[in-house]
């Protein structure tokens, strides 16, 4: 596959992000260049404070860059209004956060359904939410509230919710940070399957080496800069991308 034909979902050039708290400036990102391609299963690693969360927030249109260029799914997110960014997140992006992802007063199914409802999906949203949970082996948890689920189960429901809105790109900031090794494996396995079987692109941050082992591409941030960008097993990568490049 020629590089030029690969679909670029995220293109960051010289992106910087500086937080100002009073007189103190924190330069979280100091010129990040990065391309995320359709089908990527990309881990962002780096020490604490290296800018992983900041980068994911920028890519997820949750925050705005200080300088540089950032295109996400063809949108120049540096110039988008708050409302259009919310729309982009709702329609094209999925999110999984570190913990407490779910609305505690809603059941697993309702949590999934709620996103569909926000998207304006009609009456079939209930059955669609159920299908997704079943597909991901979470059917038995459908009617449980988050506090009746383990941390690992909650995270898997959160992934199901992210998938339900049929996003092109799912962003996950330390999704396994609160999980034990076994649960982390299960979650990563599930994400990986969605990546290979449904072609959903994942970008997640972590500092767990076992999680990193699942990634096909690892971007290392150090002090707000990309220090390393490695892709493992190029043949494998090319395989799964062929199906997605030209839908």
């Amino acid at each position: 596959m020629a590089q030029t034909q690969e679909q670029v979902l995220v293109a960051a050039e010289e992106v910087t992000k500086t937080y100002k708290t009073g007189k103190v400036e924190a330069r979280a990102l100091r010129g990040v260049g990065l391309q995320v391609k359709a089908g990527d299963f990309l881990a962002i690693v780096g020490p604490s404070g290296s800018g992983k969360t900041t980068l994911l927030n920028l890519v997820g249109a949750l925050d705005s860059v200080t300088s540089g260029r950032l295109r996400v799914l063809g949108n120049d997110v540096t110039t988008m209004s708050k409302r259009r960014r919310a729309d982009l997140r709702l329609r094209e992006l999925g999110f999984v956060f570190q913990a407490y992802n779910l609305v505690p007063v809603l059941t697993a199914r309702e949590n999934v359904e709620f996103v569909l409802e926000l998207q304006g999906v009609g009456a079939e949203r209930t059955s669609r939410a159920m299908e997704i949970l079943d597909e991901l082996g979470l059917g038995e948890f459908a009617d449980r509230r988050p506090n009746e689920l383990s941390g690992g189960q909650q995270q898997r429901v959160a992934v199901a919710r992210a998938v339900a809105s049929k996003p092109k790109l799912i962003l996950a900031d330390e999704p396994t940070a609160n999980l034990d090794g076994e649960n982390a494996e299960v979650l990563l396995g599930m994400m990986r399957r969605l990546n290979t079987e449904q072609g959903i692109t994942f970008v997640f941050s972590t500092h767990d080496p076992r999680v990193v082992a699942h990634a096909r591409r690892v971007v290392t941030l150090v002090d707000g800069r990309v220090a390393k960008d490695e892709t493992k097993g190029p043949s494998q990568s090319a395989d799964s991308q062929t199906g997605i490049v030209e839908p």
């Binding site: 949750l62 997140r89 709702l90 329609r91 609305v103 505690p104 709620f114 926000l118 998207q119």
Partner: peptide, 15 residues
Amino acid sequence: RELAILSALGMKGRQ
């Protein structure tokens, strides 16, 4: 936090 997550998921101010 809960409202922040929903807002991250794309819930609008109106909603």
